[in-house]
Nucleic acid binder design. Structure first.
Length: 418
RNA sequence: GUCGGUGUAGUGUAGCGGUUAGCAUAGGAGCUUGUGGAGCUCUUGACGUGGGUUCAAAUCCCGCCUCCGACCCCA
């Protein structure tokens, strides 16, 4: 019999985990710098919360992993981080607003089709600002994303911003009812091109409407303002709140329309240059009435979800991980024969006590095999220990890559490896 | 969910109706015992799954599943 992993799941072996761990560690200081506190909610919630009608469409509900507990309660696995966070805010009245919460490599489940960069079990990072309605909060979300991207080493990326309010005004102006369908199609403009989008739109709209949409998408903000007869555009306010250093990463784009389901205003997505086909690696926006839908006070909120899986994939293809990411010990202690084994074991523990990641043979392998093993595991150093070494209290420290050996005392080794 | 492709040791593959299912690599043991990435010897290990056709199926047909693309979707 042989067992398989369930579809859409992955095993992360130590060599994978060092990379994931690296990204985790790179993101955390960014969140901390901005003053976000970390939050974690249960892996499963009541199905009632997860399927709370107004917040998601029918398709989304189908993608929830659901089950009954022994008492017959209907439960489901968390499929996004925002819903449980909204639940916390809605139900815990003692929380003083605003709050700034982050989550880093939080696990999520969606029962959907697996595709490149999409799994049924995956991780996400992100931040939420709840209880602040000004454009500064939205601007800060963008700043966090920019800093996060830069921290990963990615330098060429664009945050494309738009607003649900602008799209709604546009829909009203040109007489569109089923605006969600329309803007979903429009959202593909970048990926599929004008021709294809026009074909798809013609199913719902007449030529005049399509023409107007396309001319709108190309407008400058000031033209758009005039066209929609609005005194100000929220996306412009957000850009205005941005420090100069961040402005160059941000671009107003009236064609983007991510996640129209619960967003109420400002929305954005992040594309990596050269990796546009992978889709957005960080997207979010303002959702001012979600908390209310979960039974809380009317509460403004804005945030971002960062697709760490996609970022990892991009870093992998671009070979951007630090070279020294290597699981396992830094030094492997090799006894020359059985007599030296005991001393090797003792020495290993001595190094560990000194804070050095050290390991030794536990299987009774012979000298040569142990060297081979250290080599195959890419352990950078070996210490060779035999009768001579024990007597002299000087050990042979071998640099595996350079194949060079030096005779050092224990403290000498500790100094060198620290 | 739809369409197309695919499935042979851990990995990469050969076999295209009758084979002891071949090869490479990885894994294990050794090449007489104080020096590893090579070489040599030995060794472990595979036809996704269930039906059907046939004297005979890894091989042909069908269902299911997996994986890979494309579409749909992505809260």
């Amino acid at each position: 019999m042989s067992f398989k992993r369930p579809k859409g799941t992955r095993d992360f072996l130590p060599e994978d985990m060092v990379k994931r761990r690296w990204l985790f560690d790179v993101g955390r200081p960014v969140f901390e710098r901005y003053g976000y506190g970390e939050i974690e909610t249960p892996a499963f919630e009541t199905l009632e919360l997860l399927t709370c009608k107004d917040s998601l469409g029918e398709d989304a509900v189908k993608d929830i992993y659901r089950f009954k507990d022994k008492a017959g309660r209907n439960l489901g696995l968390r499929f996004d981080p925002t819903t449980p966070i909204a639940r916390v805010i809605a139900t815990d009245r003692s929380i003083k607003l605003p709050v700034k919460w982050c989550y880093n490599f939080v696990r999520m489940w969606r029962y959907e089709d697996v595709a490149k960069g999409r799994y049924r079990e995956f991780y996400q990072a992100g931040v939420e600002i709840i209880g602040a309605e000004g454009p500064e909060a939205d601007a800060e979300i963008l700043m966090v994303v920019v800093d996060y991207m830069l921290a990963t080493g990615l330098k060429q990326f664009t945050l494309r911003i738009n607003s649900r309010k602008i799209l709604d005004a546009l829909a009203k102006k040109i007489g569109i009812n089923n605006s969600i369908d329309i803007f979903r199609i429009l959202d593909k403009l970048d990926k599929q091109g004008e021709k294809q989008v026009k074909i798809e739109l013609s199913e719902f709209l007449n030529d005049r409407q399509i023409k107007e949409i396309f001319s709108f998408v190309r407008m400058k903000p000031e033209q758009a303002r005039k066209y929609l007869n609005m005194s100000s555009l929220d996306v412009e306010d957000v850009v205005a709140a941005l420090p100069a250093k961040y402005k160059k990463y941000v671009k107003i784009d009236f064609s983007i329309a991510r996640g129209l389901d619960y967003y109420t205003g400002f929305i954005f997505e992040t594309l990596i240059k050269g990796q546009e086909s992978l889709g957005s690696v960080a997207s979010g926006g303002r959702y001012d009435n979600l908390i209310e839908k979960y039974g809380g006070q009317p509460t403004p909120a804005t945030g971002v979800g960062i697709g760490v899986e996609r970022i990892l994939e991009i870093l992998e293809t671009k070979k951007m991980f630090p070279k020294d990411l290597q699981p396992g010990p830094k030094v492997f202690i090799v006894p020359i024969n059985d007599k030296a084994k005991k001393e090797a074991f003792r020495l290993t523990q001595e190094l560990r006590s000194a804070g050095i990641s050290a390991d030794t043979d536990l299987t009774g392998k012979k000298f040569k095999k142990n060297l081979e093993y250290a080599d195959s595991q890419k352990i950078p150093y070996a210490i060779i220990i035999g009768e001579k070494e024990i007597k002299q209290k000087k050990y042979l420290l071998k640099d595996m890559a350079k194949r060079k050996e030096s005779r050092l005392s224990l403290s000498g080794i500790i100094n060198k490896l620290k």
